[in-house]
Design a binder for these strands. Sequence first.
DNA 1: GCAAATTGTTGTGGCGTACAACATAACCGG
DNA 2: CCGGTTATGTTGTACGCCACAACAATTTGC
Lengths: 387, 387
Amino acid sequence: MFGEQGGRNDLVRRHNLALVLRRVHVAPATRSELTRVSGLNRSTIGALVAELVDRGLVVEDEAAGAGQVGRPSPLVRPSDVPIAVAVNPELDAVTVATVRLGGRVLAKERVPFDAPPTPDEAVAVAVDTARRLLARSNGARLVGAGIAVPGVVRRVDGLVRLAPHLGWRDVPIAAMVGEALGVFAGAANDAGLGAQAEWVFGAGRGVEDLVYVHGGASGVGGGIVSGGALVGGATGHAGELGHIGIRRGGRADTIGVRGTLESEVRRSALLEVLGLDRADPDELEAALTADRSSPVRAEVRRQIDALAVALASVINLLNPSRIVLGGFLSALTAATPGRLADMVATRALPLPDEPVDIRRAALGSDLLLIGAAELPFTRLFADPLPA
Amino acid sequence: MFGEQGGRNDLVRRHNLALVLRRVHVAPATRSELTRVSGLNRSTIGALVAELVDRGLVVEDEAAGAGQVGRPSPLVRPSDVPIAVAVNPELDAVTVATVRLGGRVLAKERVPFDAPPTPDEAVAVAVDTARRLLARSNGARLVGAGIAVPGVVRRVDGLVRLAPHLGWRDVPIAAMVGEALGVFAGAANDAGLGAQAEWVFGAGRGVEDLVYVHGGASGVGGGIVSGGALVGGATGHAGELGHIGIRRGGRADTIGVRGTLESEVRRSALLEVLGLDRADPDELEAALTADRSSPVRAEVRRQIDALAVALASVINLLNPSRIVLGGFLSALTAATPGRLADMVATRALPLPDEPVDIRRAALGSDLLLIGAAELPFTRLFADPLPA
DNA sequence: GCAAATTGTTGTGGCGTACAACATAACCGG
DNA sequence: CCGGTTATGTTGTACGCCACAACAATTTGC
């Protein structure tokens, strides 16, 4: 807010180009719609769209004559030319995908690993797979790569500070991938990128103040959107909802602290009481709603109550208008509808006419890849000129 | 991020005017300094400053020839013309002040009350006192009023949703004061405004990611700055740090929830073990550091540990680079230096080379009034033209 | 007292958007 | 089937704002 630089005039152009491109990325729009939402003049929107078409970033569909009086306005859609590579290294696999503007996953490939991939292995797989996938898509132009890492990542330079499950520490993963591919690469925490994906394309669409909470096999994470911007924090580590303290004592979580959200709310504990070895999200949800035995109900209630304490803290702290639950948290709350909202209400500030809208995530298994692709795309928006 | 409006060119001017004015408000600067930090051209800065001088918002001091080679650059300081009224209704008094740009409190008056003031009483006192204080300051121009309310306030329109200690509920205090004074008026939570004051003028100067925690007689509150902007939340209620849940059971806090930060960390509990009836901040701190009896030490430790749990949650959630402690929390931590930082470190993400900087508040008793004045001033910055 | 350095001042040019006038293409009513 | 109405794309002009260059002013240092 202070050390900010002024100086604009050509920056106005860049800002407006980014505005249009971002809007079209989120959802196709006619030129007249763009004129309306931006408040810019028809002629200006015309010039901006023309420039974006020139640069191969958007395309115009001849009209969608929507039964309206007046000359039809051409529909502006994201072009198929710009393409991003998304990478998601996990405990037992590295997933690589090519993603187009508009969050459209073009191709996806999962390479299994027996042991957690080392950084070098992950990069090698990412680059090989990316090259192969890209070779298939003629006419596409690679604009960058995004990596969703299950760990703490410094956003500015994509340095993995700590990824306990992968065994990584201070790994410059973004630089490694970027150098190998010869393009920009960014990296961020996986749950944070899930938050971004749900915000832009999913259950958080259009909301300015949003908290996303993701329940993964290895813990709980999330992301925060405040005032229409992703909260990164000083070094980009914000959003570690799993390490909110909710009680004294209790189990230790993945970083050895007792009584945190992720020490109380665990997917493995659910599988255990259900007597399951492994289950995909749908199976878990089916099992949870089907099994009405008392140990299962008790565990579900216990976890929901713990989640409610953490969410109430987050609500009182950040006053979001919506909370989106992803991963197994979605299944968890589906099993006992209403309980979470009720428990949250008893602990949040008593403003009953402004309840928080708690929803399940809308995006499926492509969530992290779509989010990861937003990293290079966001950069493209910030500076659409060099295309 | 989405529904944003584009359209700029004259807005560039407004933006740059605001930039200069805000910078001068935070600290006086020479024209050459303004040129450097803004990246704008000398001639542009000259024109901007000239316009602000025209409008009576800044003044230029003839040079401060600082022993440097070259033509001396005039110092630009905030003018004494624009003036804001700051109001702080409390349990036992209504404090009113006139504040100049730069956070300079010109005059202050505290009007005691036996019972908590009603909204009408508070407005009457505010308006009467403000008129009297303003009459004394010749040549000043009232730009607006700001009200710091101990309660939950909707920022957009300054509606007091809930102020338990005052007994207010859904009181449009900003509209009432604004109408009575005939100028813009804004209202916000007192601790949130304290956060803003510390951020702009105090221990959070220049920091982009900051959490301020205020310990008051009636509870704990605070404010969050993220990415160089105050976090308001969907309705402006963000920052209620006192209602973070840290344990099961325990006492009930002011809204009847058990185990929250403000149910565990209480000024009254400190006074009790010290055997004091009342104490101003300095007396409290002196008493806490002087009394080394074991009940006092135990209570201090207990409260610090509780605070640490909440702060660790906040750190993991928001990744601030600095935390500022105000009110009695400042005295609390001074009594046992180091313990808070140590306790926080054991619960925060293990990134030891990026420790959070925990500091005591730098501003004194004028904190809330300075913060309240920022409400109309911020509005002035956003639109310095109509002056 | 003169050279060097730094900054204020002034006039010109370029860039980007707004605006107005015109062109185009749908719908609507007969 | 055709002219009127409405909405939008297109084009050329005008205005606002900043960058830049050249010049003026003022201090330091030798």
